[in-house]
Design a binder for these strands. Structure first.
Lengths: 197, 197
DNA sequence: ACCTGAACACCGTTCAAGT
DNA sequence: ACCTGAACACCGTTCAAGT
């Protein structure tokens, strides 16, 4: 490989084309030919940079949820833990819409359930995200903002699971009002973190 | 079609073979040839009873979650609403395991996110299940078993979403202890339905 | 009326031939 | 060193030929 920097750039170019196709048609239905057409290269050129279609899928799967991690910064900035979680939920639910990346997210789950490599990738991410939320809960407890009868780790897992479940349902339905969903999610967060005495 | 009853029987036989293959290899990776070998028929025979592979997938998708509906009967029998929900969660989490039907469930979500026909099928089921849970919550409120600061429909949706999210995560991880997961789910149900006064 | 299985079109992947 | 694009193996679907 003569120029590693150039190779990386070409890889990113191809991944960009792949993302575009996967979003529109899903992993199964997009062909290598589709991706090559979108990236304006030949199959041979693609296979010099990626071993097979699965490698493209794994790369995209890792990227898609990485964006969620970026939103986590909002948790620390928020004036209130529950408001922070509400914002996190809003951005996730808005993104993983039936008309947006919802179907892609569903594809990613399916891929992870069958391919151990993708599974490990997503699990590591999940644990980071969950840890971050658990830390925010602990902080809120210290500040007296949260009573948290539930252990922080358990609460974090429940909050993530519920958000994933809601996002999946949204991917299936036409896009119902995000506001209603966020309101429901807020209720969940309140009940888990601030039980009435 | 000479004998409709025989045709139905043959359809069921083929669907049985398809389920077996889909469970093991997933929708994408199983070939028509696989299914034909499992059912001991020729491709031509299969295509006289099913229009295409998608029809097989849709049929299996509809069936897999129908079993969950059957478990709902436990809700009414349970001595306590939260215990009933706990049992529902246990049976769902046990079934949709990484070594069980978890990967199949993930495939089904992905299919529903792309195919409107499958989506409508799952949504109708979901609404029935949710309605059933909401009704159980309302009953518990009347009996004074649940305080339910949350509207029954919202609580039902949150409980279902969280269960789906947890099941998906289980499909990805190796099978962690079901007991821990069920315990967490119980905590969720308690906090949503019985806020401490 | 129903089936078989060869044939066809399509898709993931490779590799001989080019620059 | 890198690319092109024809070629190969495989898979979903069809249909001529059989019973």
């Amino acid at each position: 490989m003569a120029d590693p920097a150039l190779a990386l750039q070409r890889r990113l170019h191809i991944l960009d084309a792949a993302l575009h196709c996967f979003r529109e048609r899903g992993f199964r239905q997009t062909t290598i030919e589709d991706i090559c057409a979108e990236a304006r290269i030949s199959p041979g050129a693609l296979y010099r940079l990626f071993a097979n279609k699965g490698e493209l899928i794994a790369a995209i799967a890792g990227e898609a949820r990485a964006d969620v991690e970026a939103v986590l910064g909002q948790l620390d900035v928020a004036e209130d833990l529950v408001s922070g979680l509400e914002r996190l939920a809003r951005s996730a639910l808005e993104r993983f819409d039936a008309d947006g990346d919802g179907p892609l997210l569903a594809d990613i789950w399916a891929e992870a359930a069958r391919d151990p490599h993708t599974a490990k990738l997503l699990l590591t991410q999940d644990q980071r995200i969950q840890g971050r939320i658990a830390a925010a809960i602990r902080l809120a407890q210290v500040n007296g903002q949260a009573h948290a009868a539930v252990p922080p780790e358990d609460a974090a897992e429940l909050l993530m699971s519920a958000l994933d479940g809601m996002a999946l349902r949204r991917a299936m339905r036409g896009s119902a009002s995000v506001d209603d969903e966020v309101r429901r999610y807020r209720v969940l967060a309140l009940h888990l973190l601030k039980p009435k005495r």
